[in-house]
């Protein structure tokens, strides 16, 4: 019985939001993000909400999901947006293959789709015979910026390790490739490369063991700042100040570490503006502008002391 009541409320809520969308003649943009438990996306959401208030000429409907791998709720969100008849969907796909088909359905329904943050799988798009532009940072180039900073500081033959993100995640793969680009360009020696699933405590454990196995490490490339924090703590516990650490994301918590030299560098990809920029581009298309093409690169910047 309770279930039916909740269901009824949900249906009423949906009807209400459809009604609202119809009553307002400003364009409606559906924003689909990844896990809002991740502060990167939380900041992005806040950036998008500020952007909506600032522009005032569109209506924002934003959804996130429970965790990084929960792409089913993203698919549901796309379907809900189709039903609600939004004008544009701006999406950071949780799975670059699984999201292709639902988004094609949205395009068939006449909705402008803009893909940001993580690119949809090119092969899967080609298979379906569609082209879709991607708005986002070059994770590989970003990681290479950080890697190059480390390479320049260590010089040829520097011994480094990589702490990777989730195996299989596209941005984790791109960042690893970017680090490996730096390794070959600067002639560094890659001693070991392991995942710590983006997480501070795991990075702390995994890295302290890697350090035991290879005490002669000179540099660490962490695929995000949360893991870099774990690495920095492991170095402090081991009393090592001779090892350089680079990260990625420029979260506030690493600010002091870059400042006092415990971290050599991190990379800012301006996540807070990323969704807002993608929304701007989507609204241009909705207003009758040309379709987006190829890869619209968003800024990345190396952050050092």
């Amino acid at each position: 019985m309770k279930l039916f009541k909740t269901l009824g409320l949900a249906v009423a809520g949906l009807a209400l939001s459809v009604g609202m969308a119809a009553a307002d003649d400003r364009p409606v943009v559906g924003l689909i993000m990844k896990s809002l438990a991740n502060e990167f996306f939380q900041n992005m959401l806040e950036g998008a909400e500020a952007h909506e208030a600032e522009r005032g000429d569109y209506q924002l409907l934003a959804v996130g999901m429970q965790n990084e791998t929960d792409f089913e709720s993203q698919i549901n969100a796309v379907e809900n947006f189709i039903t609600q008849g939004v004008d544009a969907i701006v999406v950071a796909p949780a799975d670059s293959r699984a999201m292709v088909r639902p988004l094609i359905r949205a395009m068939e329904a006449g909705i402008t789709v803009v893909n940001f943050d993580v690119a949809l799988d090119a092969d899967a798009l080609a298979e379906q015979g569609v082209e879709l532009a991607f708005v986002g940072p070059d994770n590989r180039a970003g990681a290479k910026l950080a890697g190059d900073a480390l390479g320049a500081s260590l010089g040829e033959g520097g011994r480094v390790v990589i702490i990777e993100g989730n195996p299989g995640a596209d941005n984790a793969t791109q960042r690893r490739l970017g680090f490996e680009d730096s390794v070959s360009e600067y002639g560094l020696t890659l001693v070991d490369s392991r995942t710590a699933h983006w997480e501070t405590e795991e990075a702390n454990q995994v890295f302290s063991t890697m350090l035991t196995a290879n005490p002669d490490i000179q540099g660490v490339m962490a695929a995000n700042d949360s893991m870099a924090i774990g690495v920095v703590r492991a170095l402090e516990s081991a009393g090592r100040t001779d090892i350089a650490v680079v990260g990625f994301d420029n979260i506030p918590a690493v600010g002091p570490m870059v400042e006092d030299g415990r971290m050599l560098a991190t990379v800012d990809q301006f996540g807070q503006q990323m969704a807002a920029n993608a929304i701007d581009l989507a609204l241009e298309v909705v207003a009758g502008g040309p379709q987006l093409e190829g890869w619209v690169r968003t800024p990345i910047e190396l952050v050092t002391q």
């Binding site: 809002l36 502060e39 703590r233």
Partner: peptide, 26 residues
């Protein structure tokens, strides 16, 4: 509890603790 943790922290990492507390851990 997970939702409450995210709610209370606004999904942000909290940092900058008293020095003595930070040192205790190592």
């Amino acid at each position: 509890a997970r939702g409450a943790a995210l709610q209370v922290s606004d999904a942000q990492t909290i940092y900058s603790f008293p020095r003595a507390f930070e040192n205790f851990g190592s």
